[in-house]
Simulated assay, not measured.
Amino acid sequence: MKRRHLLASAALGLGLAFGGAANAQMDSVKACFVYVGTIGDGGWTQAHHASVTKAQEHFGDKVQFQWQESVPEGADSERVLTQMALGGCNIIFTTSFGYMDPTNAVAAKFPNVKFEHATGFKREHPNVGIYNARFYEGRAIEGLIAGRMTKSNKIGYIASFPIPEVIMGINSYFHNAKKVNPDVELSVVWAFTWLDPAKEADAAKALLDQGVDVIAAHTDSTAPLAEIAKSGGNAIGFGQASDMEDYKPTPRVTSIIDDWSPYYIRQIQAVMDGTWVSEDTWDGIKDGTVGIGEFTGLPDEVKAEAEGMRDAIAAGTYHPFTGPINKQDGSAWLAEGQTAPDGDLLGMGFYVEGITGDIPK
């Protein structure tokens, strides 16, 4: 499985203890990127590459950029990383969860090269950093919209793999839908893929056939939106990773847009300045890493409510996981007014109360 974050609080504490050694300033840097998909996939990889393009524009000829598309996770990625390190890359960004072990393995062999892994949890060497985004914040806004817009009270979620990032997204989506619509029911279809348009389309069709009329997808292609559009009904959905603007104004009514460019610029500059250190970074809406796309095809009152939640999350006055919230089995998780600790979210392996079905093992 690719990318995504499994970090529990204990692991986070351990990881934050690592710090990079002092580095020399550099007049020029070669920054390299490993992509799991194509730069035109319409979702995850396209968003990363758009961020790289912004970084290129920022640095001009001071930084040389290199990337490789469609690199399978596992042994192939270790070979590509080794070639990049031997080819003079000073910092290498690995943009998929499944690159985690290869990243650390190659980093051990090239201590003078900096490695940045997207959405992983292992930092076994002082030349490895981790970066991720608080996608669950965007899921809360989607959930609010789903709760307000559903006519059938049946909302759906296309899930990729049963890892904490995906589970917290499902929980955030449902919990915030339930807050505005106590009658809402959630159906989850597990696709067991990040990028397979045929499987994603089948998952969307299965949900539509169940009477679901709002679908969120934690996969990478535009196939779910295409399937919704093809159905000819009144169902709606959301862009994922990229804006997926071809489906505006509906069925795509907003989107979670990944913008990694501030992080890429900051970390590349740190290598140039000799100030790079091994860190674990988890940014969200307020940092600009999680962007919320234009709201389209929504009633004015729903749009205003969604904008209000977005702004409250950015201001730190609303947390998508604010108690009281129980776990699926009815046991208490968060008390009234309590917000979820990062460690709980990064190691999340349970559904919240009201979601039916089991999390696959």
Rank of each mutant, 00 (worst) to 15 (best):
43 G>A: 11
307 E>M: 14
5 H>P: 04
276 W>D: 10
224 P>Y: 08
178 K>H: 12
149 M>K: 13
160 S>N: 09
26 M>A: 14
233 G>L: 12
59 F>E: 09
92 I>L: 07
166 V>R: 05
255 S>V: 11
207 L>Y: 08
236 I>T: 11
112 N>E: 15
154 K>D: 08
249 P>C: 07
153 N>C: 12
306 A>R: 08
296 T>F: 05
296 T>M: 06
85 A>Q: 04
54 K>G: 01
20 G>I: 07
270 A>D: 11
98 G>P: 03
139 R>M: 13
112 N>G: 14
203 A>F: 09
354 G>R: 04
53 T>Q: 15
68 Q>G: 02
320 P>C: 06
168 M>D: 07
20 G>S: 12
224 P>E: 11
321 F>E: 00
65 F>N: 07
329 D>G: 04
84 M>A: 02
88 G>M: 10
122 K>D: 11
338 Q>K: 12
239 G>M: 04
288 G>I: 08
145 I>S: 10
200 E>M: 06
8 A>N: 15
303 K>H: 08
40 G>E: 11
101 D>G: 03
31 A>C: 02
257 I>L: 12
316 G>H: 11
133 A>Q: 14
155 I>N: 07
41 D>R: 09
116 E>G: 00
90 N>R: 01
341 P>E: 10
122 K>Y: 06
250 T>M: 10
246 D>N: 14
124 E>R: 11
221 S>Y: 08
358 D>Q: 14
171 N>D: 13
314 A>S: 14
298 L>P: 09
111 P>L: 07
78 E>A: 15
160 S>T: 13
73 E>V: 13
307 E>G: 11
336 E>V: 02
191 A>F: 05
164 P>T: 08
355 I>Q: 03
16 L>A: 14
92 I>G: 02
169 G>I: 04
169 G>H: 06
336 E>H: 01
135 F>Y: 15
136 Y>T: 09
81 L>D: 02
359 I>S: 13
298 L>A: 13
250 T>D: 10
197 P>E: 09
229 A>I: 01
284 G>Q: 05
155 I>L: 11
